[in-house]
Each structure stands twice: as structure tokens, then as C-alpha cells.
Amino acid sequence: MFSGAYAPDRESLTLEMCTAPAAAEVLTTWFLGLLPPGAAVVFNTQDGVENGYGDTNYALPHGGGTMAVARALGDHLRQVWSTDHTTDAS
């Protein structure tokens, strides 16, 4: 289950509060197959932006199937969540 929005004027898709496999299913079923060969899909997550990765574009594998997309999304989240942004107060 997911909720989200598509904004053609901004060429963006927003998926909210879902698992990486659910997001991958939506992306591969409804969107990635519509892209021309060689097209790149970049993404970020709210956690990515909030943890200092706002200027980083992560690419989704095109043509790799649902599991490859889910793996890319999961790898992104693991990277974002493992980043230590604590500062030494001494």
C-alpha cells in the first residue's frame, strides 16, 4: 500500500510512507516501462535530504526488474541511515 502524487509539470513522482519493495512495485509496474531506453531515473528520500544528501541523485536501475529497484532503494536508505551526523561537543 502506498500514497503519492505525480506532477507532470515538475516531472516528479512522490511516493509516501511505503516499503522499498512496495515503491519498487509501483515504479516498475507503472512508470519505468514507459521510459525510452537509456533514460535515467534519479531519486532521493526525505531521510536522504534531511541527512545531508539533498544534492545527491541516486539512480534507479532501468530494466532490472522489481528486485533490482527495491535493492537500489534499500541500499540508499541503508547508506542514509548509517551516516553519523553527530558532532563532538567538546
Rank of each mutant, 00 (worst) to 15 (best):
T87G: 12
G64R: 03
S90G: 15
A22M: 12
V49A: 14
E16F: 09
G74A: 14
R78D: 15
T83N: 14
Y6A: 05
L32A: 01
L35V: 02
M1V: 05
G4F: 00
S82V: 06
A24G: 05
A23Y: 02
T83A: 09
G54R: 10
A20E: 13
S82C: 08
Q46Y: 12
N44H: 10
D55G: 11
W81N: 10
T86E: 10
W30F: 14
A72F: 05
V26C: 04
M1K: 09
G38R: 01
G65V: 00
P61C: 01
L13R: 02
T86D: 11
Y58M: 07
Q79P: 03
Q79C: 08
G64S: 01
W81G: 12
V26I: 11
T83F: 06
D47W: 08
F31Y: 06
P21R: 05
T66F: 05
V80I: 06
A7D: 15
P36W: 10
A22C: 12
D47K: 11
T86I: 03
H76G: 03
V80D: 02
E16S: 15
S12I: 08
H62K: 13
G63F: 05
Y58E: 13
T19G: 07
T28D: 09
Q46F: 14
A24Y: 06
A5P: 07
N44E: 07
D88Q: 13
L27K: 01
S3I: 03
S90Y: 14
A7H: 14
A70K: 04
D75N: 12
A70V: 06
G52L: 04
R71A: 15
A20Y: 06
H62W: 11
G52N: 01
S3D: 09
L13H: 06
T14E: 09
F2G: 08
V41S: 01
S3C: 08
R71E: 15
R10I: 05
P37E: 07
P61E: 04
T83R: 15
E16H: 12
A89M: 14
A89F: 12
T87H: 09
G33A: 04
H76Y: 06
H62V: 12
A70E: 06
N51W: 05
T56A: 04
W81D: 07
N51V: 08
F43K: 00
L13F: 02
T56S: 08
A72C: 06
G38I: 00
G65Q: 02
G4C: 02
G54P: 14
V26M: 12
R10S: 09
D88C: 15
A5E: 08
T66A: 10
V49K: 07
A68N: 05
A59W: 07
G33F: 00
E16T: 13
F31T: 03
V42D: 10
S82W: 03
M1L: 08
F31N: 04
Y53M: 13
G54W: 09
S82H: 06
G33I: 08
V41N: 02
A70Y: 01
P37I: 02
P37L: 03
G52I: 00
T83H: 09
S12F: 01
